[in-house]
Design a binder for these strands. Structure first.
Length: 1117
RNA sequence: GGGCUUGUAGCUCAGGUGGUUAGAGCGCUACACUGAUAAUGUAGAGGUCCGUGGUUCGAGUCCACGCAGGCCCA
């Protein structure tokens, strides 16, 4: 059995071959099955939607998921991964509408709801094949055979069961939200409809800056200076018709406000007004600033003003004022100043008038501050706003009752009698002294695309889940979730929970999970259906009661089928389904339950798989999937839904721009994988930036990863395989005890074990990037560039002895361990590596690395001293190399010795232990150590700032100066006595200990030195005759090796060398080093001849040498 | 506008709890090596650590205010 050897490994082909192997041998299924009965590691798949093609960012997101599932499998956990598909929602609907060339209006007219939904069902899985292919090719292991699909009957039934549970707990209620509404068309508009071109138009509206009179109560007295002072808060509105609905005023927390004394320009009354400081100049003419308030005469054009006080927005919060237009009274305390997060000083007065029924922001801040909306009770006893659905003021608004708030009656606006309602309101406020300023203002305003009439923001019926009822629990449990990165959990998600509003479930659409609530027309009675069985029996009742003509089986829980069902209430009235669909986020948030058709079946499976140990999705899901999972889990199970979560960032193009098909900068994942193979793509994405940072995806980076990491690893394996095959090393021998292995063997094994621990800790901490980087650094720097480089000869030279076996075993262990610990990130390549090794050695019974187990850290094999001295060896070698370089002495020229000043015994022993390595690496004969006793060391002293800073603090500078002024004698004194007194000032001294400073050797007089940190190395550059000859010998070896290579000789081929007599130094070198040359070049004989035809001319420094090598001695000469 | 996040060499990124010469890889330049060779090694050039203030004996690191990019929300 031989180790596979590859020429020009094709990484894409590795992917294909390994995939084939996995499929043939059911490796994925077995990686789950072989862990059956072990502790489960629960993973939830956030379902993608297959109505679009997958992009490169999906590779990123899924690589992250895959890594931890594979890792946990290696650690022995039982990791089920059920796939899933998200199938409902607006994107599908829009795509279908676009393809059919229809709009929402046409549904139910040009096309039946049934046909429409059928189209959606077909469209949503259109690219499923592409998704499946990508899943396979990128190596994302997830069960695609039994996925959950959100449009399936069982799935929807589970959603219904959950909704009913919420309903029974009192968490489901009908309320309203503020939505764009067209009174002329009598319908709500989606934001999508509003974004149709031409909907936003320039209009000229009457705007009012209204004066809200501050109440003269104790709470507000800080705003008043005099008994008779009238203090008003100014607020601007472009929709005066909303003023009767005012219940609050909003200020910005950090905005500066001022109180200004002035006069009302319509009534000439003296007033004090409050507005944002930055906007004073917009309402007051600076020319009037110098006029005394007392000099004002009624009717003067220039109105004097005086800024008398300044406040922060937060000071104003809580100030109460008198209702501006007291037609209707609220049912709770209102009319006070609140903080609004969206208030600016860009226009208006920096104070915003709040009318909760007519603005979405208004509604939200009012709800957050417990400010009621102004509602009246209609003839049905229903609470309704003060503007009806036709856009008219209700009866209660006496002065304006029945008037359209906008011109929905299509009156002739050019007629001299025509007065918009807004103007009438302005006139009334002017008369009452409540208008500070009225003017026309031109701005854009949305219009209904069908009627061309202005849209109102208006409360429309909506079903809600009362998430605010469990807000504290949501926050509390969120704190137990391990978020990566942490800031998403406490920041983005935490803030979202802090500012929670009830979850608006309603969607006025067709393709989605229907709301399972039936109501009587008066809304008095209702039922929430929680299962198909319940629905069937209710239908049965309805048929018996006669509200339905005949019994129908429910074939599909979608619209329109459920809409055709009429149920009967307790009192015998017909109940119709609330036509809303529910938010698709409910579908995905329900997946922990619905994927198992829980609670109808699989109770045990559900319980074993809840909550999830781990989920991962894009950070854009924070308020989507992450929230709905969390909210449902808290409300239904009083539990978190997931314990660990990675919120990954975006994948941008190499310039940091968002990828889009339109801009043409989108990267095709299939092309990437096809070109570079799945492993390099995955490794690049994971190693380049932490998943939660945005990734600037540059294909050149993939190339680099492939070359630098996979290339190096593959080179190392090839090197191993080449010689192991020659020596028939199959790891059949007993492990060579560590004691009998070389320093470098023990070093790399020590490093390897350290690595295994680091990588384990990083995976455990859900930080794949650090894991990948640690592996990469080990492979490139430690294993390849140091261990293999230093030990090459042990592999290809000499007989198959214990030292050679130790080398093979060591390198084998490193490669195999890397295969295991890197397999979660690069599952294909590492599989091949593992199998290439294991199929020869049969060390493991598992035929796949993904069935194997994560290696244990052999603590006994970790030797920190050894790692430290190898560091020393590397640094010393590097210093010597740099000295050689400066002197232009090539490494092949041996040198006699290097000198290393040692500061203590430990350092000396540490270096001595790796002296052989250093000597062979830098080609010198001996290392000499010099210490204090030599008397030639020049030492350098530097303060230990960290330590001294803590002691001396502000006097640090004095200490530092004193330390730097110490001479050689002082340093010696300090070292000898363990203390040294320094002068800080004339009358202040301090005693230093050796710990307070760092002492290093600086120079060796008369030598060529180089230093780094505390290490200094001196090189003896004398080249004796003997060294010179050895250098020539080594050069000859080198040239002969080249000749061997050029002649295409195999590594093990023996040769005969003939050299024509050359310069005397060369001849001498050949004679003296004949044995060495022969050994190195696998030569059986080396002869100097007088005449050598057919020879190769070699240039060695200044010499010319004629050489001929032959495998057959007879053909020579 | 708000919340979160990023900003360090031409590029991609490291830089626990503050410590005085800010690092790596790639790229660039020069040299070396040549039985791992479509490799490798050594050296060099390259930095207002986004800006401005502040805290401190000492700030890439802590604080404040900005600037620029990104995401989510409005």
């Amino acid at each position: 059995m031989k180790y596979n050897e590859y020429k020009n490994l094709n990484y894409a082909k590795v992917g294909e071959d390994v995939l084939e192997f996995w499929k043939r041998n059911n490796i994925f299924e077995r990686s789950v099955a072989t862990r059956e009965g072990n502790t489960p590691f629960v993973f939830y798949e956030g379902p993608p939607s297959a109505n679009g093609t997958p992009g490169i960012h999906h590779v990123m997101a899924r690589a992250v998921k895959d890594i931890f599932c594979r890792y946990k499998t290696l650690k022995g956990f039982h990791v089920n991964r059920k796939g899933g598909w998200d199938t409902h929602g607006l994107p599908v609907e829009l795509q279908v509408e676009k393809e059919l060339g229809i709009t929402k209006e046409d549904i139910g007219k040009k096309i039946t709801v049934e046909e429409y939904n059928q189209r959606c069902r077909e469209t949503v899985m259109r690219f499923k094949n592409q998704w499946d292919t990508l899943t396979e090719q990128m190596g994302y292991w997830v069960d695609l055979n039994n996925p959950y699909i959100t449009f399936e009957r069982e799935y929807i039934e589970s959603c219904w069961a959950l909704l009913k549970k919420l309903y029974d707990k009192g968490y489901l209620y009908k309320g309203y939200t503020i939505q764009p509404y067209s009174p002329a068309a009598g319908t709500g508009l989606s934001s999508h409809e509003l974004n149709q071109p031409g909907c936003y138009k320039m209009v000229k509206d009457t705007t009012i800056v209204a004066q809200f009179a501050v109440k003269r109560i104790t709470r507000n007295m800080f705003l008043f200076e005099r008994e008779d002072e009238q203090v008003y808060i100014l607020a601007w509105t472009t929709t005066p018709w909303t003023l009767p609905g005012n219940t609050a005023l909003a200020v910005g927390k950090n905005i500066k406000y001022v109180k200004v004394q002035t006069y009302n320009q319509y009534t000439y009354e003296p007033i004090s007004v409050i507005l944002a400081k930055d906007l004073v100049s917009r309402y007051f003419n600076p020319k009037a600033a110098d006029i005394e308030l007392a000099d004002y005469n009624s009717g003067d054009k220039l109105i004097p003003y005086k800024i008398v006080e300044e406040f922060d927005g937060s000071d104003l919060a809580g100030v109460e004022y008198h209702q501006l237009m007291p037609y209707v009274q609220p049912d709770k305390p209102a009319f006070r100043v609140i903080i609004g997060d969206y208030v600016t000083t860009e226009d208006g007065t920096g104070i915003v008038h709040i009318s909760p029924t007519f603005g979405a922001d208004d509604f939200r801040v009012a709800a957050q501050n417990d400010i009621p909306a102004l509602l009246i009770t209609d003839e049905n006893g229903k609470q309704v706003p003060i503007v009806d659905r036709q856009g008219r003021f209700v009866r209660e608004i006496t002065d304006f009752a029945g008037m359209y708030v906008k011109n929905y009656a299509k009156e002739d606006e050019s007629s001299p009698e025509y007065r918009p309602t807004d103007v009438k309101i302005a006139i009334k406020l002017k008369e009452e002294g409540k208008a500070f300023k009225v003017e026309k203002y031109e701005h854009t305003y949305p219009h209904c695309w069908r009627t061309d009439m202005p849209v109102l923001y208006y409360p429309l019926d909506s079903w809600f889940i009362k998430t605010t009822a469990v807000k504290d629990r949501l926050i509390e449990l969120n704190k137990t979730i391990n978020w990566k990165p942490e800031s998403t959990g406490i920041g983005r998600f935490g803030n979202w929970l802090e500012n929670l509003v009830d979850w608006n479930l309603s969607r006025s659409r067709y393709w989605g999970t229907p709301l399972p609530i039936w109501r009587t027309e008066d809304g008095e009675e209702e039922i929430c259906i929680g299962s198909v069985v319940e629905l069937t029996s209710e239908i049965d009742r309805a048929v018996k009661a006669g509200v339905m003509e005949q019994f129908i089986e429910v074939p599909d829980l979608h619209r329109p089928y459920v809409d055709n069902i009429v149920l009967v209430s307790k009192s015998g009235k017909p109940m119709y389904r609330e036509t809303d669909l529910i938010d698709v986020w409910f579908d995905s948030g329900a997946m922990p339950y619905a994927q198992w058709h829980y609670p109808f079946e699989n109770k045990e499976i559900f319980e074993q798989n809840f909550p999830a140990d781990f989920i991962a999705e894009g950070v854009d899901q924070t308020r989507g999937w992450f929230f709905t999972l969390h909210a449902l889990a808290v409300m239904l199970e009083d539990s978190v839904a997931f314990k660990n979560v990675i919120a990954n960032g975006l994948v941008l193009d190499k310039d940091g721009n968002k990828m889009s098909k339109r801009l043409g900068n989108a990267i095709d994942p299939f092309e990437m994988i096809g070109t570079y193979g799945p492993d390099a793509v995955r490794w690049y994405m994971i190693a380049n930036a932490p998943p939660w940072d945005n990734l600037k995806f540059n294909p050149e980076g993939v190339v680099e990863t492939q070359r630098r990491f996979f290339g190096t690893l593959q080179n190392t394996y090839s090197f191993f395989a080449l010689y192991a095959n020659l020596d028939n090393f199959t790891y059949q021998e007993e492990d060579v005890p560590m004691l009998h292995r070389t320093e470098s063997d023990r070093w790399i094994i020590s490093k390897l074990n350290t690595l295994v621990g680091i990588v384990d800790a990083n995976y455990e901490d859900y930080d794949p990037t650090r894991a990948a980087r640690a592996i990469q650094d080990f492979v490139v720097d430690d294993l390849s560039n140091w261990y293999v480089r230093l030990n090459r000869k042990r592999f290809w030279k000499g007989e198959y002895n214990i030292d050679k076996i130790a080398a093979y075993q060591t390198l084998y262990t490193c490669l195999e361990t890397i295969a295991k610990i890197a397999s979660p990130i690069a599952p294909f390549y590492m599989e091949q590596l593992y199998r290439d090794l294991n199929s020869v050695s049969n060390k493991h019974k598992e035929e796949s690395v993904h069935l194997a187990y994560y290696p244990e850290v052999e603590k006994a094999d970790i030797d920190k001293d050894l790692e430290e001295r190898m560091d020393l060896a590397q640094t010393i070698s590097s210093l010597v190399h740099s000295l050689r370089k400066k002197q232009m002495i090539k490494v092949r020229q041996p040198l006699q010795r290097i000198l290393i000043p040692v500061l203590n015994d430990k350092m000396k022993h540490q270096i001595a232990a790796v002296a052989d390595l250093i000597m062979s690496e830098v080609n010198v004969k001996t290392i000499e150590y010099i210490d204090d006793t030599s008397g030639i060391l020049v030492k350098k002293i530097k303060p230990n700032f960290k330590k001294l800073g803590q002691v001396f603090g502000p006097k640090m500078k004095l200490v530092a100066t004193a330390v730097q002024q110490m001479n050689q004698n002082d340093i010696a004194h300090l070292e000898r006595e363990g203390g040294f007194e320094i002068m800080l000032s004339d009358d202040e001294t301090a005693v230093l200990t050796p710990d307070d400073v760092e002492i290093s050797s600086e120079d060796i007089p008369g030598w060529l030195v180089a230093s780094e940190g505390r290490l200094t190395v001196a090189l003896d550059i004398t080249i004796t005759e003997e060294l010179k000859q050895e250098g020539i010998a080594r050069d000859l070896v080198n040239r002969i090796q080249n000749l061997r290579k050029d002649s295409n000789l195999e590594v093990q081929d023996k040769i005969h060398i003939f050299m024509q007599r050359a310069a005397e130094e060369v001849n001498q070198a050949v004679v003296n080093y004949s044995a060495y040359i022969c050994a190195e070049t696998q030569a059986l004989t080396l002869d100097i001849v007088e005449e050598l035809p057919n020879s190769t001319i070699l240039d060695i420094d200044d010499y010319t040498v004629l050489i001929n090598i032959q495998t057959d001695v007879k053909s020579a000469v």
